[in-house]
């Protein structure tokens, strides 16, 4: 299997998952509406779900780890686009913090981080803050890079979270800000 041939995540299989996604989307929308109706100041997370990222752009954790373990791996920029606090607890070695994709300030930080990069540069995004279809950061961050013209952007599919889908698998981590 080449680095970019991935197994289709179970999320995208044509079974009951679409119905589940729909139900969850309705629940999330209902929650967002109920909160925003009574609490005008609170802004719910960006609804641009990670599920909007094309399957062809997804990487599994193992694939990324295999790529990073190769002594002369393809030059790439690995960016965490979630919580800074979770990044401080543990992150992929060599990755940079690029701000939460769900927040305007996070997207601005991401834009600045990639400003000097060639558009063909391999950029790998990951988050793992929450279950994939609930992640508020990945979809927006991916969209941002696509809109900026980057043509080689990959997103690490973490079904549950960074703990389960990276750390628990024994892949290396770094700590610190």
């Amino acid at each position: 299997m080449t680095p970019f041939q991935i197994e289709k995540p179970h999320l995208c299989r044509p079974n009951n998952s679409h119905r589940q996604i729909f139900v969850r989307a309705v629940l999330a929308a209902a929650l967002g509406c109920s909160i925003s109706a009574s609490h005008a100041q609170f802004q719910p997370p960006n609804p641009l779900s990670a599920s909007t990222i094309p399957v062809s752009s997804l990487l599994q954790s193992k694939q990324l780890n295999d790529m990073l373990q190769k002594p002369s791996h393809q030059p790439m920029l690995v960016l965490q686009v979630g919580s800074h606090l979770l990044f401080s607890e543990a992150h992929i070695p060599g990755s940079d913090y690029a701000g939460p994709g769900s927040q305007p300030a996070g997207l601005e930080l991401l834009r600045k981080r990639v400003a000097s990069e060639p558009k063909s540069r391999l950029i790998v995004l990951y988050c793992g803050c929450c279950p994939w279809d609930r992640c508020p950061n990945m979809g927006a961050a991916y969209r941002q890079l696509s809109d900026l013209g980057f043509t080689n952007v990959k997103a690490v599919y973490m079904a549950s979270n960074f703990g389960d889908d990276w750390v628990a698998k024994g892949y290396p981590i770094e700590k610190g800000r």
Binding site: L85, L86, S88, E89, A90, G128, C129, C130, S160, N161, F162, G163, D164, V167, K175
Partner: peptide, 17 residues
């Protein structure tokens, strides 16, 4: 408010909730 120290104390809070 939590922080990484409290997160590690509780086994690594590397995903929520």
């Amino acid at each position: 408010m939590g922080d990484e120290k409290l997160g590690e104390l509780y086994g690594g809070i590397l995903g929520l909730p």
